[in-house]
Computed example of a mutant assay.
Amino acid sequence: MNDLPICTCCHRELRNDELRQYACNLCADRIDSHLGAIPRLLARLGEHLERGAAAAGPAVSGSKTAPIPCRIDVLNLRTAAGPVLAPLETWVRDWAEAGYAEIGERGTAAARVAHACGTLRFNLSRAVAEHPAVEEMAGEVASIWRTLSRIVEGETAPRRIAVVCPCQQTLRITLDTRGETCPRCGAEYGHADVLRLPLAERRAAA
């Protein structure tokens, strides 16, 4: 049980109905959404295996040009030992040891990703309430989701904005940052708190 009255993921103060949880309901919903989207995004990676495939147009029979090289980064995401399936199944094994899940590591990599995400979603409410490492899991799942989304949907990296800590240290954050710690004074800010900090003034042009 969480002994602190804050969400370990976004550092927001927990509401009365969340006090026995490690993550607030908003963060739990975000984790669930990411897990639900990952198998669908993975299934679309095949459309992005070839460099420039989206702009290349239909294939022409008898073309004398060399085939478009395969994107190794995309290919790696689809492998069993790659950065999608491996961490997801690591968490399934971790949760299985704690009694939250059942291991099922058979079939294709895509099938195993779907099983892992489904297992983690099914047991998410219990893990949010009982597993002290849910913050770490949430971070890894979000990272996988962002990686796949940027490839499949063409999303760019979140825009960073500069805010100022009361000690005058400038912090560069994104609108979806989970929290920030000031490197100068050590002040810790949750998601809502860091977004309330004043914007840093732009330096006047020389």
Rank of each mutant, 00 (worst) to 15 (best):
A80S: 15
A142I: 05
R146F: 11
T174F: 11
R106M: 12
T170S: 15
R146Y: 11
R203F: 05
S149T: 05
R30Q: 09
Q169H: 11
V113R: 10
A101M: 03
P158C: 14
I38K: 00
L4A: 15
H34G: 13
T181C: 09
H115F: 13
R30A: 06
L26I: 04
E105C: 12
M137P: 00
A80D: 15
N25E: 11
L199K: 04
T8N: 12
E201V: 10
T8K: 12
P83M: 02
G118V: 02
P166I: 07
T8D: 13
C167T: 10
Y100D: 08
G57W: 04
L75M: 13
V163P: 15
G46Y: 08
D94F: 15
R196T: 03
A138M: 04
R30D: 08
E50P: 06
D29N: 08
L45P: 07
P5F: 04
A138S: 11
G104V: 00
L26Y: 05
R51A: 10
L19F: 02
T181F: 02
V128N: 04
V164Q: 11
A37P: 13
I31H: 03
A205E: 12
E105M: 13
L41Y: 01
A101V: 01
M1K: 07
Y22S: 02
A98G: 07
R178Q: 12
I38D: 01
A43L: 11
C24R: 01
T147L: 13
R12G: 11
R71W: 00
A43R: 10
E130F: 07
S61H: 13
R196K: 08
I6Y: 12
G99R: 01
Q169P: 07
I72N: 11
K64H: 04
I144Y: 02
I173G: 14
G154E: 09
F122D: 13
E102K: 14
R30C: 03
C10M: 01
Q169V: 03
A129K: 12
E130S: 12
V164K: 08
A23V: 01
G46I: 01
V84M: 03
G82A: 04
E18Y: 02
I68R: 15
G104M: 05
L19C: 03
L199N: 06
W91M: 09
C7W: 05
A200Y: 06
L49A: 06
A43W: 05
D17G: 08
C24G: 06
